[in-house]
Simulated assay, not measured.
Amino acid sequence: MDVYIRTLARYDGLWEALDILGGPAEGPVAFGGELGPQTLLAAYRRGLYPFPAGTAEQRIVNELIYESAVDAGSVKVLPGSDEPYSIAWCSPDPRPVIRVEQARFQRSLRQQLRNRTTWTTTADVCFERVVRQCRAGRAEHWLTDDLLRGLCVLHELGHAHSVEVWDGDELIGGTFGVRVGAVFSADSQFTLRSGAGKAAVVDLTRRFAEAGGLAVDVQRDGDHVRLLGATPIPRPEYLTLLATTRHASRPLATERLPARRLAG
């Protein structure tokens, strides 16, 4: 654990050396590094999330698109990177965030859940299975094996969490991400039944609020997250929220609960 803490402090310093506030609003603010748990946690604590290139072709595309920005210094390359374009680090401006008190459901989904008497939700029951399901069948494999391994270690250390939605004993939806104090950065979700993925996000928001959480960062904006209550906030506001609440921590409740409670 001492080695882990020392390494985390080293990567905290690495990210501090980046001008994240002055980085590009869209696309990566940095390239390079690796996807070990210390690197990942230090990055999330600084408002960054990874977007690895899953194939050699994607790395070439990154280089073609961003080489001029790297040469100009507007996008940084982390020191010691053998293949810098294999990992992009993003910090969008603005950032779509669901304040826990503003999370909402569409009426149709609330009605659907009232009738799903066999649906239940849990947390942290099968983290790796949720992550693997989030990448199943998707052409763009940003959830690489290296990233999956790093996230699973973060889960074992209590920093990464999942929410599962079940129909009886069948896993039908879920979401996962990394917690930094009172902010949860949700990486991805999946759904095998209509509404199950959205139910996972709202359940996460409920459980996180009960654990003292203030906001769920959904990373990428879009109509689907706006419908759940996400509002874009400026990057400086998001980074301030992270910095001022990073030490808040109460355990996330993990017990199995009826999904229909979310419709109330």
Rank of each mutant, 00 (worst) to 15 (best):
I5W: 08
L64C: 08
H161F: 09
A9Y: 04
S91A: 11
T240S: 11
A199Q: 08
P94W: 05
W166A: 09
P24Y: 01
K198C: 05
N62C: 11
A136G: 03
R116W: 05
R99H: 08
G197W: 15
P52I: 03
Q111K: 04
D124A: 08
L14Y: 04
G47Q: 02
P84N: 04
T117A: 13
R138Q: 15
E140H: 14
R6K: 13
P234E: 10
F105K: 00
R129P: 02
R10Q: 07
Q102L: 07
L147A: 06
R99K: 05
F184P: 01
G150A: 08
R206E: 15
P251K: 10
W119L: 08
V178L: 10
L257Q: 14
A196N: 02
H159P: 05
R110W: 05
R261W: 08
D223Y: 07
A43H: 05
T231M: 09
Q38D: 11
A69Q: 12
L21E: 00
G137R: 14
E34F: 07
V29K: 00
R10G: 03
F208R: 05
A211F: 02
A230F: 06
W119H: 08
L64P: 01
V75C: 02
G177W: 02
I172E: 11
G174C: 09
L157I: 05
G197H: 14
I65C: 06
T245Y: 09
G177L: 14
L18F: 00
E237W: 10
W89K: 03
R260N: 06
Q106W: 04
C126M: 15
E140Q: 14
Y11Q: 09
R235T: 02
D145I: 02
L192G: 10
R138D: 06
S81E: 01
P232S: 12
H159Q: 10
R107N: 04
G174Q: 09
Q106D: 12
S249Q: 10
T120C: 08
L257H: 01
D187Q: 15
T231A: 07
R193G: 07
R149A: 10
W166E: 01
I5Q: 10
G212M: 00
T175G: 09
R138V: 13
L257V: 15
A263H: 02
D71Y: 03
Y4P: 01
S68V: 12
L48A: 00
I233K: 00
A69C: 13
L192Y: 04
D12S: 11
P24H: 00
Q58N: 09
S185Q: 14
E140D: 14
L192D: 02
R99T: 03
L242P: 01
A56L: 13
A103Q: 07
A53E: 14
D145Q: 14
E210T: 11
R261V: 09
G33C: 03
D223L: 13
T7V: 11
E16D: 12
V201T: 14
V70F: 03
W166R: 11
I65L: 11
S185T: 15
V218W: 00
Y85L: 14
V125L: 13
T244H: 09
L113P: 10
W15T: 01
W15S: 04
P24L: 00
G80H: 10
A253D: 13
D187I: 04
A259R: 04
G27Y: 06
L148Y: 09
E156D: 15
